[in-house]
Amino acid sequence: MTSFSAPFTLAHLSDPHLPPLPKPRLSELAGKRALGYVNWTRNRHKYQRREVLDALVADLRAQAPDHIAVTGDLVNLAMEAEFAPARAWLDEIGPPDGVTTIPGNHDAYVRATYHRFGETFAPYLTGDDGRVGFPSLRRRGPTALISLSSAVPTPPLMATGTLGRDQLADLERVLDQLAAEDVFRVLLVHHPLKSDARQKRLTDSAALLALLKRHGVELVLHGHDHIHSTMWFEGRNGNIPAIGVPSASALAHGHYPAAAYNLFKIGKDNAGWRCEQIVRSLDHAMQVREIKRARLV
């Protein structure tokens, strides 16, 4: 088996909900955005903080990962004025060949700006084939990063995601292609593969889970729920870990933990693939420190 002289380090953060929120135009505050704006001004601005996001990213960059994955919700209400600052923030994290992002439900908050995520972040979405679309495939070191989009506009009070038949069919073809390659397959999707909240679920998760049972991947990374999460799902050659992470800009509040990100040390030895998870989180002193280390594979 192939051996790597040093583990490949993949960093994962999610749901930065880039603060502060630009002042909206009156014409933008209709329907779902109106409710979202009220929620921001009454609640979310208190715990979605730019200084938190900056501290987390500074620590992440100090760890010098080989690649960074950002699994969606870069913006809040998908207003036109939110996308340029979010792109500038992503550019500060790293260049497009070193950072992969996917959209979340807040990036597709309303139909009027549904297209803006793909336009704004195209270099960070483009697959190795030069195509902007989902699923996309990027090979980085020993990993094959497979990006999905579960981001679709939804009615007020709903935050569901959907992949759709076409994307699932294309994903099956990608996994068929990778079956003959010696790569560590990482699936990126914003919504978790299982949710108890009907209004936040991935609507076609059963179809995705059935596909993963047939083909398998080594790791699934997601956001959306703003909590630390580890779930295991049946794959072709064993159970698949699906890892969620808190919002990258959040102070601890209620049952939601403070901002955190994960590092995955990926390599191979005579026993096969190895993957170690390291969790780094913001503490009460606004310092980022390691809080957990676990062997996943």
Rank of each mutant, 00 (worst) to 15 (best):
P156D: 10
A159T: 11
D128G: 15
D97K: 13
T113L: 14
L157H: 15
T120K: 03
D66M: 02
G130Q: 06
L187V: 01
P65L: 00
A62L: 09
D182T: 10
L137W: 06
R140F: 08
A159K: 06
K194N: 12
V186R: 03
D128H: 10
G104M: 07
F134T: 00
Y114F: 11
A62W: 03
E92N: 13
S149Q: 04
V152M: 07
D170H: 12
A86N: 01
D91C: 07
M79W: 05
G141Q: 00
Q63C: 14
A69P: 11
T162S: 14
I93R: 01
I93C: 09
P135T: 01
G127K: 03
L157E: 15
A88K: 14
L188N: 06
I68D: 00
T162A: 14
R185G: 04
I146T: 05
D97P: 12
L178P: 03
R61N: 09
P85F: 02
G98V: 05
G72H: 01
R173I: 09
L171F: 12
N76T: 12
D73Q: 07
L178G: 02
P142G: 02
Y109F: 15
L178T: 08
A112M: 10
P65A: 01
E181V: 04
P135W: 03
G164C: 06
R173Q: 14
P156M: 09
L77V: 03
R116Q: 15
E80G: 05
H67I: 01
E82W: 05
T120D: 05
M79Y: 05
A179M: 07
A69N: 11
E82T: 04
A159N: 10
G118T: 11
D91G: 06
S147L: 08
V183Q: 11
V189R: 00
N105M: 09
T162Y: 15
D66N: 12
D129C: 00
A144R: 08
A151C: 05
G98P: 09
I102C: 05
V189P: 05
P123G: 01
T160A: 13
D59C: 10
N76E: 13
D107T: 12
T71M: 05
V110Q: 15
D176I: 12
D128V: 10
L178D: 02
L145M: 08
Q177I: 11
E119N: 11
R173N: 10
A112N: 10
G127T: 04
P103I: 01
I93S: 02
H190Q: 09
G141M: 00
A151R: 01
D196A: 15
P95H: 06
A151W: 04
I102Q: 02
A62H: 08
S147R: 09
A64M: 15
A151Q: 03
I93P: 03
P153Q: 04
F134P: 03
R185L: 07
P96R: 02
D170N: 12
I68K: 00
E172W: 05
L193G: 06
G133E: 08
R61L: 15
A144P: 11
L193A: 06
V186M: 06
A197I: 12
T154E: 14
V110G: 11
I102D: 02
R185D: 13
E181G: 09
A78R: 03
N105Q: 12
T154W: 08
V183N: 02
F184I: 06
D166F: 08
R140C: 12
L148K: 05
L77D: 01
A179S: 13
D182Y: 09
G72M: 01
P192T: 04
G130A: 08
A159Y: 13
G98M: 06
P142D: 01
I93N: 03
